[in-house]
Design a protein around this nucleic acid. Structure first.
Length: 348
DNA sequence: TCCATTTGACCACG
DNA sequence: CGTGGTCAAATGGA
């Protein structure tokens, strides 16, 4: 496959999406969610194109460098964004959709007209999501919500990610780690139960990482994921689990303040990657440590074992499907509101 | 048989 | 005492 032509087609797709968005702008006040999702997709497409460009040029000799670069961008954006939100939190909530929309639109158009060396749009989008939930979390913990009991887990990183549209939309989004579910609970005031997961290698490697996954009340196609504790399993040379390079790089230098910045890229990658697999049932076992990255993606798929640089694999994944990102398109715009979790709810 | 998920019960915290 | 987090037995798939 010709990398350039694929990239070009991706850019074209982004342009089309941008045009669609433009025509949809009058609906912004009434349907901010739809517009927001449209933005997501635009950002995603252009981001993929940029990644492709980077991976085919500078990153060729050192694929890690692009990750480092993006990570650094993220750090900078994160700092300013947090500062901005601190000063304008309530207003920020109001302005969020407009801000992202403007940014993405301008970014998208500019990127197609000039070059795409400085994307950051996807990064910013992730930052906005995370900064907001982070602030929500801070606000909540300082007022209504009681602090978490298990203090040994340390900081909490919270983010929102779109649900995989293909297959079971109720499965938690892929994030590159292997998780084992150990509980599910109805939460007061929430329509959907919260799932509790811990690292599959908790026993083997004493990995304290945990996560909680919950669907948003107002948007069942969006998950809110809370990460608690850091993975130690990937530190071990014998550990079967490994991280996407970006995560791995940053995990080691991550501070509590910036911990929240770790996820977007990894999540972004994994979401798209997940789409390639055509989704999978959560009934899968992830089973032995042998099933790594492949066409069959389970809830516990991970990158590192067989794939050196997931961004390359991601790019392939996004283009090998022929229809390019149609999968993610569907998952963005198709609303399949199945909620098996609801039917499976129990007391407690 | 192994391992992941389910799910009712238990427990810590405020 | 209510709620959220975790445990662990039961269950089931490969």
């Amino acid at each position: 496959m010709d990398n350039i032509s694929e990239t070009v087609s991706l850019i074209h797709r982004g342009c089309n999406l941008a045009r669609d968005l433009e025509s949809n702008l009058p609906n912004l006040p009434s349907r901010p969610e739809t517009v927001s999702k449209s933005l997501d997709e635009i950002i995603r497409v252009f981001g993929a194109a940029r990644e492709r460009l980077q991976s085919s040029s500078a990153a060729q000799h050192d694929p890690m460098s692009s990750y480092v670069h993006v990570a650094q961008q993220q750090q900078q954006i994160d700092a300013s964004l947090h500062e901005w939100l601190r000063c304008n939190y309530t207003q920020a909530m109001e302005d969020l959709h407009i801000q992202t929309q403007r940014f993405a639109s301008e970014k998208s158009i500019a990127a197609t007209q000039t070059d795409m060396r400085d994307s950051g749009a996807d990064v910013l989008h992730g930052q906005i999501h995370q900064a907001i939930v982070s602030h929500e979390l801070n606000a909540a913990s300082s007022s209504q919500s009681r602090p978490r009991r298990r203090r040994d887990d340390g900081e909490i990183r919270k983010l929102t990610v779109p649900a995989p549209r293909i297959g079971n939309t109720e499965i938690p989004p892929e994030d590159g780690f292997t998780w084992r579910k150990y509980g599910q609970k109805e939460i007061m005031g929430c329509r959907f139960p919260r799932g509790y997961y811990r690292c599959t290698h908790q026993k083997l490697y004493n990995c304290p990482a945990k996560k909680q996954v919950q669907r948003l009340d107002n948007d069942p196609l969006t998950f809110e994921v809370m990460y608690r504790g850091d993975h130690t399993c990937h530190m071990s040379s014998t550990a079967p689990s490994s991280l996407p390079p970006s995560d791995q790089i940053k995990q080691e230098t991550m501070t509590q303040t910036h911990a929240v910045t770790t996820q977007p890229l990894g999540t972004w990658l994994s979401m798209d990657f997940n789409a390639r697999g055509g989704g999978s049932s959560s009934g899968g076992r992830g089973d032995g440590d042998g099933d790594g990255v492949g066409t069959s993606i389970t809830t516990t798929t991970r990158y590192g074992k067989d794939v050196e640089f997931p961004v390359v694999d991601l790019a392939d994944a996004m283009f090998n499907s022929g229809s390019s990102s149609s999968n993610s398109m569907d998952f963005m715009f198709t609303s399949s509101m199945d909620s098996k979790w609801e039917s499976g709810d129990k007391k407690n």
